[in-house]
Write a protein that binds this DNA or RNA. Sequence first.
DNA 1: GGTTGTGAACAAATTCACAGCG
DNA 2: CGCTGTGAATTTGTTCACAACC
Lengths: 233, 233
Amino acid sequence: MAEDDRRTIPEATVARLPIYLRTLADLAASDTATISSERLAELAGVNAAKVRKDLSHLGSYGTRGVGYDVEYLVYQMSRELGLTHDWPVVIAGAGNLGQALANYAGFGNRGFPVVAMVDTDRSKVGSRINGVPVRHLDELEDIVAEHGDIIAVLATPAGAAQDVADRMISAGVTSVLNFAPAVLNVPDHVWLRKVDLAVELQILSFYRQRHADATATATASAGNGEPAATGTG
Amino acid sequence: MAEDDRRTIPEATVARLPIYLRTLADLAASDTATISSERLAELAGVNAAKVRKDLSHLGSYGTRGVGYDVEYLVYQMSRELGLTHDWPVVIAGAGNLGQALANYAGFGNRGFPVVAMVDTDRSKVGSRINGVPVRHLDELEDIVAEHGDIIAVLATPAGAAQDVADRMISAGVTSVLNFAPAVLNVPDHVWLRKVDLAVELQILSFYRQRHADATATATASAGNGEPAATGTG
DNA sequence: GGTTGTGAACAAATTCACAGCG
DNA sequence: CGCTGTGAATTTGTTCACAACC
């Protein structure tokens, strides 16, 4: 079954694997050898049945009556997530957000070295941000040629995002993480994920607003729309 | 039906409303009076049936044979999302990411003014970043007292996130957007959303890896695991 | 004719509950 | 006896397809 499922790990599961991995890495660092689905669930903020089902998609790596071997799970999950080698990243847009991302230790540390930033602003091109060279957007093809299969992180203004994405893709990029507040159209062979800061705040605003409405109008009645939704995934 | 559904807009729909709203605001700015579900779907990157079902949760604001009135929809959606007034935001952590977020125009512009940053680093406290005062974490209670019901954006290191969240919550905060790479535990009455940059890259890495495996091992056979998943939600 | 609004069909994800194994 | 792994049940979300309406 495991071998079969290899081809069909559900999207929802894939989105949780990195959380498990981070949790497990912490456990390994604190010399925990084994962990139960119950405890891992607690640490990862999900429920135990979900953990077991998620992990079962990777294969049968647990021991009944005991739990999962932490080190081994870390190894298998890293392999599964393709984290056994680094993936070079190029950040498009050397504005505030782009610079922050270039400085963000979480990237390089976790196997995603930022090899370059690109921008069209000639006054920025040629400088370095946190050691990362800022190059002109026109050099994109060269950068891809130098580093191979890079991941593009878009931190441009909304208006420029589609153009830059198009150029990235025609230069050979197949993975894009979009921070620009714009909907991107990409061909089928390109993987796209998006992070929209304003959208997240607006979602919070919705639930908050709802709550205000509910408590204002009805001081009676039991609680309906409960909070504590953990979004993004 | 619409009145009934008011209380139960599906989570998946709520997560899309901000995208529709942004799209509609753009249309309004370019003097488009009416829009069909088909066209809105195209611009928002979803399918038309989904748009219609999503909008039906807000009420019957469309006209058969014609489409939706853009201005009116913008108004209704803003109201629904609680965007008719500003929601003050406090950013915890005046590091790279926190500073970038404070500088990020998308926040203040879209009704989420950053009223303060908090940090424990005395060398930062007292300064201003993009006009936003940096105050000490200990002043949190005062800030909440000054501005009322604020939204907390956590941009602290992972290790500090739970502590800061706890302090935010005991100061009265009920909405938290977490950028720290850590799983937070919050009480039931607090709304939590999270954005994890490294997680997003790892998800891209998974699909990319899969693709590499597939094309490497089998040069034959039709395409299975197709790309172009648009994540985050 | 064109487009919405929505039941019904379908698909994905979650949760339950327990057999099976260590 | 404890904990995994997984079928079955349930819930949630998506898509279809068409009647209702302008």
